[in-house]
Design a protein around this nucleic acid. Structure first.
Lengths: 157, 157
DNA sequence: TATTGTTATACTCTATAACTATA
DNA sequence: TATAGTTATAGAGTATAACAATA
């Protein structure tokens, strides 16, 4: 008969497998982004700015789920390298509208292709349907977080 | 028509969804483990020791994918609380055999039940088949990591 | 000479409090 | 008074180098 894996109990929990899978993903994507001098967070910010011209830092911090003080350093780095520009918003002079530069867009296009290749590497062996289900399952878990299930049940009566 | 999500590009990458899902899981499991004064890593170590009596610290470090110096503090904490014991291995007096105490086993049983409830909460809305596929997909991604695909292809010719 | 566990330490990521300039 | 962005800082989590005891 087949031997039980020594971590079989923990393997039943999605958090255990997710931590290990995420470690593998992070190592691979950071290697894929190294030629562009990008990390996961700087890449994510660059993609969000390309897809949403004029985005505010506070909105970006919300989307990437990082604290505003930590985002400042990320934006500083992208701006210093001439990949994005901070432009004062016309309607609210406290805020910045974030915009990609031509240089930033070229780096974005190349890095996005590299990350797509990374995604294909990491999900090799999964069918398209299985990949789609994985993405949906992760989203479901994210949405299930932060819910007070007990009071939800009680108020739902 | 439906509006495109602002992070639609990033949502296509499993790493993006996984980071967000894992953040939700970590927050929920830490809340579930707080009554037992356990964290994710101390819980995982306790489960591994219960399931594998006599496990060595070096083996546990390999399984949990944490560096030996960092594991020392985890084991110190569990031992100080009387949940596990370090016993010198008879065949190798450099090594410790890790064993759970009766107190540790009782805490393990209660915490394991709490984490099972946490898993059910976080994966609510997924069918059993979808949950099983999620676990398998995460394992596949973990296994796809750390492989030099180019040389694998070349040596495979 | 190599390995187990340990100490010390550094580096990254993340979180919070307090400040500025605008609103 | 509240908000956008910033500064400074503290706390986790994670990584490496070097050591003592044993193999």
């Amino acid at each position: 008969m087949t031997e039980r894996e020594r971590d079989a109990t923990l393997r039943a929990f999605s958090g255990y497998g997710m931590k290990r899978a995420f470690n593998a993903i992070q190592a691979d994507v950071n290697a894929a982004l190294a030629p562009f001098d990008l990390r996961m967070v700087t890449f994510s910010a660059l993609v969000m700015i390309v897809d949403n011209p004029g985005l505010r830092q506070s909105q970006l911090a919300d989307f990437l789920a990082i604290e505003p003080p930590n985002l400042v350093l990320v934006i500083d780095e992208l701006e210093r390298r001439g990949l994005i520009a901070r432009e004062r918003a016309m309607d609210d002079r406290r805020a910045y509208a974030l915009l990609v530069t031509p240089t930033g867009r070229r780096l974005h296009d190349a890095a996005l292709a590299a990350v797509k290749a990374h995604e294909a590497r990491m999900t090799a062996g999964l069918t398209d349907d299985e990949h789609a289900l994985l993405i949906r399952a992760l989203r479901r878990i994210e949405d299930n977080g932060g819910i007070d299930h007990e009071s939800a049940t009680l108020s739902g009566t």
